[in-house]
Design a protein around this nucleic acid. Structure first.
Length: 516
RNA sequence: GGCGACGUAGCCAAGUGGCAAGGCAAGGGUCUGCAAAACCCUUAUGCGGCGGUUCGAAUCCGCCCGUCGCCUCCA
């Protein structure tokens, strides 16, 4: 079927086709770095990361560029409040953002670009706009003339006449049209500035993304992503600038926008002050669990944030992680080969895709039927990938993943060993990897505690063996003491008919030393 | 006022013309020395409301109610 994506400009899902076959070029708008990153910034990054991973899987070489807006009015204002240089303040929050990306396994970004590193590109582009009659100079400022671009408003689906100019901000009387926006702002005394033909100043907000995306990805690149709150005016203005400057459209083939993260049914945002710093969440939850939370809702629907919603997501995520661990190393090791095939047939109520007579509606639910686990696994993986193809339907994809988990766990409970579970385990591993769910799953607790994991593994194994010995003598006091002590140290034990398996507890609170 | 999303179980959430996925929570059972984990069973004759189209509607159309976003801070 191929990948299909919703494009904001056309307002519909359509098949993804890139400018150059086999290559997908993507630009996402990063944060303005004047405050801590919150989960609202995380959402577009996770969505783009999954999109990048999925496109790679579907055979595209993915180039992904994202930016930092590291100079603007808010940064200057904050820096003055804090008595700090704007560049230093920006760097602090860039570091915060990068740390959070790393904690979440967002590792497909090929290039981070900063406004302050691209002044020549920006000045050059503004110059072209002025020369082309799309921009004009007033004092030391340069404005884009929206009336010079006949299709202005096409991305956000509105016309100049429909907009209430000045509804929230007083209109600058020097502008020719109220909607005209700044490309270049003259520097006030004491502000950072860069030279330009119009005098010392700094770029307006929108021009940077046009200039940098054109430089690194070329005109007509494939995907431009970001939060839905950027559609107007930011992306609208980007389109206008870029198409005015290049004279050739379209600037971007697919505009991909995620809906907002909300708190108490209100958008989370830095300006409303209702945000939770991402670093706090990262300290308390594995990256994979946070990704699960974001991906459990389709990216074009609002996502309600709450602490309990995160906890619920982590519990669900833990189910995936535990299945993955259990299938790799069932405690009993090898089993006899006799009757092995029966162990991996699992009950399933899902109707098979084949077998329904065409043109006839089934009148009753199909009877339960046993299917070989490898078949269930490949069907689940297929369903998972089809869901991602369908405009990145991650919530639907997760449904398929849990069906696979139930089938695999059932086989495991019936006595299947790691060899018999290999297909299911492989499918689970691959699917989870596309969503980046295994971040923090393996050694989360151990690594946080800063313990050499080899040593910890050996000591824990020793205690588990001692407990097994105590249990064989029916010495329940000693056995329970070991189990309780390990639990306190963040290690959970799973007794099964064929032996005991241990794992790091997913609750970081239980791990001494996990927090600084 | 304009433009655009959205409303599915106690909660979260897929599904966009033909059997209402999945998860969390809850209850019951199996397993266990007791637990935990895992497994099995149960939980929406109904998808915000009212009309309409259709053999058939959560899905298409109309009206209404409600929530959210954008209309130069924003991911």
């Amino acid at each position: 079927m191929g990948v299909r994506l919703f494009d904001t400009l056309q307002g519909a899902v359509r098949p993804f086709d890139s400018r150059e076959p086999g290559v997908a070029r993507m630009y996402t708008c990063g944060p303005t770095v004047y405050n801590f990153t919150h989960i609202g910034h995380l959402r577009p990054a996770v969505v783009a990361d999954v999109l990048a991973r999925h496109l790679s899987l579907r055979g595209y070489r993915v180039t992904w560029v994202t930016n930092f807006t590291d100079i603007d009015d808010k940064i200057i204002a904050r820096a003055q409040e804090e008595g700090e240089a704007p560049a230093a303040l920006a760097q602090r929050y860039i570091d915060d953002y990068l740390e959070n990306l790393a904690a979440l396994g967002i590792d497909r970004i090929e290039r981070f670009v900063r406004v302050t590193d691209h002044m020549p590109d920006i000045v050059d582009m503004i110059g072209r706009l002025v020369a082309g009659g799309f921009a004009y100079q007033v004092d030391g400022d340069v404005y884009f003339a929206v009336e010079a671009k006949a299709d202005y408003g096409k991305l956000s689906g509105r016309t100049l006449g429909e907009m209430r100019a000045g509804a929230r901000v007083e209109v600058d009387p020097r502008k020719r049209h109220p909607m005209d926006f700044a490309l270049w702002k003259a520097a006030k005394p004491g502000e950072p500035s860069w030279p330009s033909p119009w005098g010392a100043g700094r770029p307006g907000w929108h021009i940077e993304c046009s200039a940098m995306s054109l430089r690194y990805l070329g005109n007509g690149f494939d995907i431009h992503g970001g939060g839905a709150d950027l559609i107007f005016p930011h992306h609208e203005n980007e389109v206008a600038q870029a198409e005015a400057a290049t004279g050739v459209g379209p600037f971007v083939r697919f505009w991909v926008h995620n809906a907002m993260v909300e708190v108490d049914r209100e958008k989370m945002s830095k300006s409303l002050g209702n945000f939770v710093p991402l670093r706090d969440l990262v300290a308390a939850h594995p990256g994979g669990a946070l990704r699960f939370f974001v991906l459990s809702t389709h990216y074009r629907k609002p996502l309600q944030y709450s602490a309990s919603a995160i906890d619920e997501a982590q519990r669900a995520w833990t189910r995936l992680v535990q299945a993955r661990a259990a299938w790799l190393e069932p405690p009993g090791g090898r089993r006899g080969a006799a009757g092995a095939a029966d162990l991996v047939r699992v009950e399933t109520v899902r109707a098979t895709d084949a077998g329904e007579p065409a043109g006839e509606w089934p009148s009753a639910a199909p009877a339960r039927q046993a299917r070989p686990l490898p078949d269930v696994a490949s069907a689940a993986e297929q369903g998972f990938l089809d869901a991602l193809d369908d405009d990145l339907n991650t919530a639907g994809a997760l449904g398929h993943l849990f069906e696979l988990v139930r089938a695999g766990n059932a086989a495991l409970a019936a006595g299947a060993d790691s060899v018999q579970l290999a297909d299911a385990r492989g499918a689970l591993e691959r699917c989870g990897e596309v969503l980046g769910l295994w971040v923090g799953a393996d050694t989360a607790a151990g690594a946080r505690a800063g313990r050499p994991s080899d040593l910890a593994d050996r000591l824990i194994r020793l205690l588990v063996d001692l407990r097994a010995e105590a249990r064989s003598y029916r010495d329940w006091t000693t056995a329970d003491r070991i189990r309780d002590g390990l639990a306190e140290a963040g290690v959970s034990l799973d007794d099964t008919p064929s032996g005991t398996r241990w794992r790091w507890s997913e609750a970081p609170d239980a791990v001494p030393g996990a927090r600084p």
